[in-house]
Design a protein around this nucleic acid. Structure first.
Lengths: 221, 221
DNA sequence: TTTTGTTCATGCGTATTCTGATTGTTGAAG
DNA sequence: CTTCAACAATCAGAATACGCATGAACAAAA
């Protein structure tokens, strides 16, 4: 999960960054509104943490501009202000929640979790140039669409959901084929083969690698 | 929009009720947790406002029980407690937000609006030249009206509400036919067929595409 | 009753999935 | 370095499952 912090006080940024990274988030930050907006629009984040008062572009303006493009990504305000009118303005600009400084880190964390709860399982998986959208069931290699059968799709999804980890044949059979402890008939090989062909992966720099005697692994680069 | 307030202090209830009704909400209330839960489960509400401390059944317990049945309807806590741990417990029990007493009515209103924003359901759905009005139950293709049976309408509505996302047969059966985990008898196929016929969708630029082994998807263009 | 709506059953064509045989590769033992 | 066995890749055809179309059965409404 990727989080963007836009905040000008370096101390707060490093405090948040450390805490959130410990929780397993990937954190990036910007110290003024303008670069923050730019990042928010060009990169992909799962959540934005915005300070209220920012150099160049205020948090509210940032939020409003961002919402014109993106309506999904949750936004949480960090605010020192606490007049009612201000928070209302903030929520009206399209924010999903706000938290008043000073706050306990745990409380922030819980609020982040609440916001992310809906987007817990990513629908778009990637591997190098390959994109798998589990919502639309579309697979693309680069820009060109690839048509996969259901089993091929399921296998690819499984591999990508475990990207960077070895997928034992046993486990693949379990989750994709639903065979509990059944014998290995060699189906997997056939489908791996089909995938490599359809996605035309060269053997040289193979995104789907064979781990002899164990299974397969989807790896970047 | 219907709101249920569960709160034992009569003064707060009438204050909230009046304010919310002025804003156009339909408000009902319960003064203890047990009747609150019963109402929440039997009636339909778009949002629940729960007090923390309630006779018979605490707000948290109410929320947790409610969430076991319903996972969608947003829940906001009204709480006098303000230790971090308590609010965390509250959010963990499945609440979407909380507000500390005493609060300004406007702030509560804004938080309600934020929660309802996501569950706003449009009444007019479109797909290419097709228009579906769920209020008047009318369907048009371009300018000419099409007459659909109830089931056909429900199916089309379901597909359009999930436009751009795969609708698995399983889920369609669940929401349109109300069969939980029942076997697939092939009804869906018949109705998809009927829809395609009545909406005369050419196979070329098919707005309702079949995803073999998975289900169907309504797609623009 | 007649009409309309919903569901089930059937057959058909085709895409998909699996099996099994064959060929190719790998790594350890000699 | 060679050999061998275990494993993986590849291919083709058989078996199967899936979705489509249709008509009949049944139920509900007019």
């Amino acid at each position: 999960m990727r989080i963007l912090i836009v905040e000008d006080e370096a101390g707060i940024v490093s405090f948040l960054k450390q805490g959130l990274e410990e929780e397993g988030f990937v954190v990036e930050s910007a110290s003024d509104g303008q670069t923050g907006l730019q990042l928010a629009l060009t990169e992909h984040y799962d959540l934005l943490l915005l300070d209220w008062m920012l150099p160049k572009l205020s948090g509210i303006e940032l939020c409003r501009s961002f919402r014109e493009q993106e309506s999904h990504t949750p936004v949480i305000f960090l605010t020192a202000k606490d007049t009612v009118q201000d928070t209302i303005t903030g929520l009206k600009s399209g924010a999903n929640d706000y938290i008043k400084k000073p706050f306990h880190f745990e409380e922030l964390l819980e609020r982040i979790r609440v916001q992310l709860r809906s987007s817990e399982t990513p629908h778009v998986l990637t591997l190098g140039p390959i994109t798998v959208n589990t919502e639309t069931h579309e697979v693309q290699i680069g820009i060109t669409p690839v048509s996969l059968t259901h089993k091929e799709f399921q296998l690819l999804e499984y591999l990508l959901r475990h990207k960077g980890k070895v997928c034992k044949r046993h486990h693949i059979l379990d989750s994709v084929w639903g065979m509990d402890g059944n014998a290995d008939s060699g189906v997997i090989d056939v489908y791996i083969n089909a995938l490599r062909k359809k996605l035309n992966l060269q053997r040289e720099e193979d995104y789907i690698q064979t781990i002899r005697g164990v299974g397969y692994i989807a790896r970047e680069k």
